[in-house]
Design a protein around this nucleic acid. Structure first.
Length: 583
RNA sequence: GGUCCGGUCGUUCAGUUGGUUAGGAUGCCGCCCUGUCACGGCGGAGAUCGCGGGUUCGAGUCCCGUCCGGACCGCCA
């Protein structure tokens, strides 16, 4: 071994012991006849003290060191003359009698400090240096701990981890597939799984009635701060369960994680229907750390001659409590926010109550009692500011949701150390896709409809609710799943609704429907976005900081420079020619 | 497919109405310093201002194009 202790380990009680440490040079402080060297490994930092008077040879050698040199020292642990209370090892230092340079280092392109001076691009290019920094190191350690706790919890409930293949078959539903050409079968392609969905259902048919996997998934769609082309799911499936069993089991998982990782105890998770989430928050993943629920004003605001409201399909408001003092300029700024093309509201109406009474941007169209009625419905008390949007229903709800989140952020109501999970239930089974002019599965094509809604499948497909559920944490969807269809006839019906011909359905999903003919148990499951969950528990919304080697926002790996062109030879072997060969 | 922001010494940021010796901080190098821990002091080196074109007597600054990075919309069952 190159060391007897780690750099974060030594304390006062080690005083007098001879130890050997190995690590990276964090910083060197030359004071003349003394040189201090901080040596770092992933466990911590220990100070080394070199003296010109007593050990000229090592002193001179220490003065030759540079940042990030890899060194090994052997010496005696000593109590410091002046202690550093900011460091766990701050009471001691090591006085080396041997110093070995294991490897020199170029000066790194950015400082290896908690607050680095490096920009994103550089840090991505030198990711292995960025990972030496505490924040990233701690993020990866958090990720590992959460993974371990997930396994511990699921294992204790009898779940078993089974691997599923990465080279599978491309399917038309859902996200764009990453595709892998087959060398052996010219013109044929594998696809990388968007999730192990069908495989875990087949494992249920196979009798492994509690399955899980912390598994990589691949989707060839555009990236975001919280989306990578390859990401990790906690993928789970259970047989012989109803929705309630799944909710209990996985609510338990998240409760376990919050307790073990954050030391937070949470009670039973609130449950909300999709319809209520949309009605009260304009969004299917509401952040319920703060109130500010939607108040619909159609019945009391329309019909009094204010055109903006009268002509709107929906007039809806949020009450920003305590914001009545907002200046004209501040309100204008909110107006600008909602009018940005990406939000798309036409304008913003407001009403406030302060020591001067009730005032609004639409006073002249209403009598005082009509205004009072609005204020009363929205519970506008002294000091409150009501923000009102009007327009087409779906668009207006979405815009008000954005405004609500914006206000929540502005008012400091989205506290990163507070965790408010909830279940959103009863999602629609199908949604209409304007572009293709057909129904799409909102969750996926294997999701079962609610039994009481099955009779609507033909007459009113859009109103059929699914046995589907999302787990939402602080405004982020962290997991979602459903009770599956396990009946071949119903599955066939679903494929019909989704516009698959019998032949196409057989070709794409025949393996699953055939399996259902051999005794498929009732089953259902859920998948959590592991990266997102880790990021949230780590107090961030950018998952990139919690992945060792992530891609940038254009799907590129700046460190290894991927994707990249391949040799003509390699293309030929794969029976591929490119339409626009790269320069 | 689209919108917005950015690209200036190794790094990070400033740079006025177009005329500067292109500046600060940090890092790097040298000298001084026996208790520092973001050590301190003094000195030094370090920039074809992303790239190409245009306007102009004159472009880091204005215009067009392009590349790269970041955020977002569409997209993500």
């Amino acid at each position: 071994m190159y060391r007897t202790h780690t750099c974060g380990e030594l304390r006062l009680h080690h005083q007098g012991q001879q130890v050997t440490l190995a690590g990276w040079v964090q910083r060197i402080r030359k004071l003349g006849a003394i040189t201090f060297v901080d040596v770092r490994d992933r466990f911590g930092i220990t100070q080394l003290a070199f003296y010109e008077d007593s050990d000229k040879e090592n002193f001179d050698k220490a003065n030759e060191l540079g940042r990030e040199y890899v060194i090994q020292v052997t010496g005696i642990v000593r109590e410091r003359d002046s202690k550093n209370p900011n460091l766990p090892t701050g009471d001691i230092e090591v006085v080396p009698h041997t110093l070995r340079i294991l490897n020199a280092s170029k000066t790194p392109p950015f400082t290896i400090e908690d607050e680095t001076d490096g920009g994103d691009e550089l840090r991505m290019k030198y990711r292995y240096l960025d990972l030496r920094r505490n924040p990233l190191k701690n993020n990866l350690m958090l990720r590992y701990r959460i993974g371990m706790e997930v396994r511990r919890y699921l294992d204790s409930l009898g779940f078993i981890d089974i691997e599923t293949p990465f080279l599978i078959k491309s399917t038309p539903e859902g996200a764009r597939d990453f595709v892998v050409p087959s060398r052996i079968h010219p013109g044929h392609f594998y696809a990388l799984p968007q999730s192990p969905q069908t495989f875990k259902q087949l494992l249920m048919v196979a009798g492994f009635d509690r399955y899980y996997q912390i598994v990589r998934c691949f989707r060839d769609e555009d990236l975001r701060a919280d989306r990578q082309p390859e990401f990790t799911q906690i993928d789970c499936e259970m047989a012989f369960v109803e929705q309630e069993d799944i909710l209990q089991t996985f609510e338990g998982l998240v409760r376990h994680l919050l307790k073990e990782i954050k030391g937070i105890e949470v009670g039973p998770f609130p449950r909300m229907s999709y319809a209520d989430a949309m009605r009260l928050y304009g969004c299917d993943k509401p952040d319920i750390r703060f109130g500010m629920q939607f108040v619909e004003l159609n019945d009391i605001a329309k019909g009094f001659g204010f055109k903006v409201f009268d002509e709107a399909e929906l007039v809806v408001a949020i009450n920003a409590q305590g914001c009545a003092h907002y200046s004209r300029k501040q309100i204008d700024e909110l107006m600008e926010y909602v009018r940005r093309p990406q939000i798309g509201a036409g304008g913003l109406a407001w009403m406030k109550r302060d020591e001067n009474g009730l005032k609004s941007s639409f006073d002249k169209f209403y009598t005082p009692s009509q205004l009072e009625a609005i204020a009363e419905k929205a519970k506008v008390t002294n000091g409150d500011l009501l923000l009102i949007l009007a327009g087409p229903e779906a668009k207006t709800r979405k815009a008000l949701h954005e405004l609500r989140m914006y206000m929540g952020e502005k008012l400091g109501l989205r506290k990163p150390d507070e965790f408010a999970p909830l279940w959103v239930l009863d999602f629609p089974l199908l949604e209409w896709d304007e572009e293709t002019g057909r129904w799409h599965a909102m969750h996926h094509p294997f999701t079962s409809p609610k039994p009481e809604d099955i009779h609507l499948l033909d007459s009113d497909p859009g109103s059929v609710r699914a046995n589907a559920y999302d787990m939402v944490l602080n405004g982020n969807e962290i997991g979602g799943g459903s009770i599956r269809i396990f009946d071949r006839q119903l599955q066939k019906k679903m494929f019909q609704l989704l516009g698959f011909s019998d032949e196409k359905a057989q070709e794409q999903f025949g393996f699953l429907m055939n399996a259902f003919e051999y005794g498929a148990p009732p089953h259902g499951g859920i998948a959590f976005g592991f990266d997102r969950l880790v990021a949230l528990l780590g107090g961030h919304e950018t998952i990139r900081e919690f992945i060792a080697f992530p891609k940038n926002n254009a799907g590129r790996d700046l460190m290894i420079d991927a994707p990249s062109p391949i040799d003509e030879e390699q293309l030929q072997e794969l029976h591929i020619s490119t339409i626009n060969p790269q320069v």
